[in-house]
């Protein structure tokens, strides 16, 4: 018996969410009086997982797994779960983890709860709190199967450092021929993705046209943030579809969300409610976004944003 956690890496480095899911797995393992095993595919500094409560790392090195493949990765995690006799499997809610989790659920005959926001309320029954209705509510779900799969929402638990040591073992796996193969990947390597970003700078129709996004990108650069937009902005083709956030777009669970010239329609807010701190800049004091925000400035984005960028630059220079 143990808690198994899938720790994702990119270009040989563990992602920050890997340390978060590891911390969370340790929290569950403590509740259940057991240990934590991590499964890593082509992982990097596996010993670093020890700082977040992992006791043992199963590291798979296999060149057929260089590109992410949901079927292959789900099979790797299933094989690790079986070899460890894991009763709980923890994954993140990255696009890849969301892709493989239902496949893993079928192969392990394990119930899966997605978008979980904290430690189980109890482990017998195994009851977790998750978001539902696109952040408009929570539900408490019992997972009733022998093995349980938990998908932990980003920033829902945070990092918990401990002083531990993780032993690494090579883990060899059997893989079938894959039914889906990657032909090409188109990913901006110089930009932070909305999924990974700690700060998201987002703008709406208040910006009038695509030509005015220079100052938004500048702010994102200064803050090391990802850029996002409201739905009409991507429908109008001002920004790529991948930037659309909200109920029907991407969810945002960043630490800071800055909304510029966005009215705050219910469908937009639904997607960003999991962000911790929300700032709104809007020239209409009646804009609904002010009711959902933590900090606000009433004013014209075309005056405020350039000034904010200058001051942020100075702040960054003084504080780094």
């Amino acid at each position: 018996m143990s808690v198994l956690v899938y720790t994702e890496s990119e270009n040989g480095d563990f992602k920050k969410t890997a340390f978060e899911v590891a911390s969370y797995a340790k929290g569950i393992a403590d509740m259940m009086g057991t240990s934590v095993t991590a499964i890593a595919v082509n992982g990097g500094d596996t010993a670093s997982l020890g700082n977040y409560g992992v006791d043992k790392v199963l590291n798979v090195t296999n060149s057929t797994l260089d590109n992410f493949n949901a079927e292959g990765y789900a099979s790797v995690i299933a094989q690790a779960a079986k070899s460890e006799g894991a009763t709980v499997v923890v994954v993140s809610q990255s696009a890849n983890a969301k892709y493989l989790a239902p496949l893993l659920s079928v192969s392990l005959e394990a119930g899966y709860a997605s978008n979980v926001v904290g430690l189980p309320k109890s482990t017998a029954p195994f009851n977790v709190k998750r978001t539902a209705f696109t952040n408009k509510a929570f539900n408490y779900t019992d997972i009733t199967t022998d093995i349980k799969i938990v998908g932990l929402g980003k920033n829902a638990y945070g990092l918990k450092e401990t002083s531990g040591a993780a032993v690494t073992e090579d883990f060899s796996v059997q893989l079938d021929v894959q039914g889906v193969t990657v032909a090409s990947v188109d990913k901006a390597t110089d930009k932070v993705s909305i999924a990974d970003a700690e700060i998201v700078v987002s703008a709406g129709r208040g910006l009038k046209g695509p030509e005015n996004w220079g100052m938004i990108e500048e702010m994102a650069d200064i803050l090391g943030a990802a850029t996002a937009c409201s739905k009409p902005v991507s429908d109008l083709g001002w920004r790529p579809h991948g930037e659309h956030v909200g109920q029907t777009g991407k969810p945002v669970a960043s630490n800071l969300y800055i909304a510029i010239g966005i009215s705050g329609a219910i469908q937009h807010l639904a997607g960003i409610n999991s962000s911790k701190v929300k700032v709104v800049i809007n020239n209409d004091p009646e804009a609904p976004f002010f009711k959902a925000a933590d900090y606000g400035i009433v004013g014209d984005a075309f005056d405020i944003v350039p000034e904010l960028n200058e001051k942020l630059k100075a702040f960054k220079a003084a504080n780094s």
Binding site: F68, N96, V180, T181, S184, V185, K187, A188, V192, A195
Partner: peptide, 13 residues
């Protein structure tokens, strides 16, 4: 398919 931070083209059947 959309991936975190971009997109990916896949072949399948």
């Amino acid at each position: 398919r959309e991936i975190d931070g971009g997109k990916e083209t896949v072949n399948t059947s």
